[in-house]
Amino acid sequence: MDTQIFILSKLMEGNTYPYKIKKQLSDPVPLDQLGGVTESKLYYHFDSLVKQGLIEIVEIIKEEHRPDKQVFGIMTKGREELPKKIYKVFENADTISEMVVGLLNIKYVDRDKVVEILEKKLKIFIAHWEHIMDFDKQIQVDKDKENLKEFLGGYISTRTEHTISWLEELIKRIQQMDI
């Protein structure tokens, strides 16, 4: 889905062809390598978007001694589906790192709706953490496991507090239009 969002967002800026998008994915940061986006995967996503009726071929450029370039444009349905796909990124993400493609394309969605999604996610996360803390108080461990329980409890607690803090910071920055 992230690749499809990237393609649709590039087509919102203007018509383009797959090879150009592949180059944009690798410059200046090699996102294509980091995300495992090969040329064949990219073409697969273009084909998928065509089959979904979100994009279409708008031009074929013929060059001597080179393969034809298929230039794609976004259709009305694609413009309507892009925000839905971005909202799904926020809804399905378990970590902020899984929200990057949504954050990069936040200009195509309603910020208030994103904040609403994130606040709901934050409430669920905090409620889950409180439940775990209550459960942790009830667990009795052998003396020889006490150190492990303390270590794991500290690790999980620190990680959870860190996640809550950064999620709150993300919500604040979206509200302030800093992101």
Rank of each mutant, 00 (worst) to 15 (best):
D32C: 01
I86F: 10
R66E: 12
V89S: 06
M133P: 00
D144N: 13
T95E: 15
Y43P: 00
V114P: 03
D94E: 15
D142E: 14
H45R: 11
G35D: 06
H131S: 14
S40I: 06
L31C: 03
G14I: 01
V71R: 05
K62E: 15
I139A: 04
G35H: 10
G102C: 02
K51S: 09
G73N: 08
E59Y: 08
D27W: 12
M99T: 05
V100D: 03
P30H: 08
L31M: 15
I139V: 14
D94S: 14
K85F: 10
D134Q: 11
P83Q: 04
P30S: 07
K22R: 07
P18V: 06
K62G: 00
E81Y: 12
K145Y: 15
S48R: 12
E130H: 05
I86P: 02
L42W: 06
D134F: 08
L122H: 03
K51H: 08
G53E: 03
K85P: 00
K51T: 03
T38N: 01
L34K: 12
K41M: 07
L118V: 01
E64V: 11
G53Y: 05
P83D: 05
M75P: 00
K41C: 05
P18K: 08
Y17F: 14
L54H: 15
K123Y: 10
Q33K: 15
I126G: 05
H128Y: 12
L31Q: 13
Q138E: 14
D47F: 07
K121W: 07
F72S: 05
V100K: 13
E130G: 01
Q140T: 10
I74K: 01
F72L: 01
K85G: 00
I139R: 06
D110R: 06
K113V: 08
Q52P: 00
S97A: 08
Y44N: 10
Y43R: 09
K88D: 11
T76H: 11
G35T: 03
Y87P: 07
L31N: 12
S40K: 08
E39A: 02
E130K: 07
N92H: 08
Q52L: 12
V141M: 01
D94L: 13
H128C: 03
K41T: 04
Y108L: 03
I96R: 10
T38W: 01
S26N: 10
M133H: 02
V50P: 02
D112L: 09
K20Y: 11
D112F: 09
I57S: 02
K41P: 00
S48G: 00
E119C: 05
Y44H: 12
D47N: 13
A127M: 09
K143Q: 10
L25V: 00
K143D: 14
L25N: 03
I60R: 04
N105H: 09
L104M: 12
S48I: 03
N15S: 11
R66Y: 12
